[in-house]
């Protein structure tokens, strides 16, 4: 499809031009890595203060202060309480007793009783429920990784989204998540997508007015599970 010769030429042209330019330098790997690492040592003085020492506490305070767009949060002692919490959420927004629960055994095996857990999220105005890999206190984020049980779209198509965040997986800073991403990469198990989600979908594109639910969720609810 692409002319092999041109492909080689453009690549070579770009590398040649970079190497010829005065501001660029060639050095051994150790030197480069040492310089790169030195820059990261400045991070502790170059990031915002958290609202509490404990990461989960800091994340919750951030949400409670209204700093995370369109987001509310609550904390439950164990995953068993989740169906009850979801029921409360649906009632709060006067929604029917139906949603899409992520196809994850630990979620599917809960006692959902009379709640339908398999609606089609391709329709609009649905509710989704996902299990986050991590939380980040600095930004009020939850993190999802695409895999066999986690469709990326589950986090984007529903109008309401409930994200379950295991308390033990709440990190202080984005830097901490970057370190974890490094570990995952070292194991060779990097997923296709790693999404840091920090609030409901929003836009200010019409006259600068903030509207939630531009394409993705209008309402986001974080449920922090203490024993997870």
């Amino acid at each position: 499809m692409t002319d092999k010769h041109e492909q080689a030429t453009s690549r070579d042209k770009i590398f040649d031009a970079i190497l010829r330019a005065a501001p660029t330098v060639v050095a051994d790997l150790n030197t480069i890595q040492a310089e790169a690492a030195a820059i990261l040592t400045e991070s502790p003085n170059a990031r915002p203060e958290l609202l509490a020492e404990d990461a989960a506490e800091a994340l919750m305070r951030r949400v409670e202060k209204g700093l995370v767009i369109g987001t509310s949060c609550e904390s439950i002692p164990s995953l068993d309480q989740l169906p009850e919490t979801v029921k409360g959420f649906l009632e709060q927004y006067a929604l029917p007793a139906e949603l899409k629960v992520q196809d994850k055994p630990s979620l599917q095996s809960l006692e959902w009783v009379d709640i339908d857990t398999d609606v089609d999220i391709h329709n609009d105005n649905t509710v989704g429920l996902c299990f986050a890999e991590y939380g980040v206190a600095e930004t009020g984020s939850f993190v999802v990784h695409s895999n066999e049980t986690m469709p990326v779209l589950l986090n984007f198509l529903p109008l309401y989204l409930i994200a379950v965040v295991p308390k033990s997986k709440i990190l202080h800073y984005m830097d901490d998540y970057a370190a974890i991403a490094n570990e995952i990469a070292a194991q060779g198990t990097t997923p296709r997508n790693m999404c840091l989600i920090s609030g409901a979908s929003g836009t200010t594109d019409i006259e600068g007015v903030l509207v939630q639910g531009a394409h993705g969720p209008e309402v986001l609810h974080l449920v922090i599970v203490e024993d997870q």
């Binding site: 695409s146 066999e148 049980t149 997923p191 989600i197 920090s198």
Partner: peptide, 16 residues
């Protein structure tokens, strides 16, 4: 609100 890292095409078994 959204920061997403993209790493290659979908993995074997990925839902989407």
């Amino acid at each position: 609100q959204y920061i997403t890292f993209h790493n290659g095409p979908k993995r074997q078994g990925d839902v989407d």
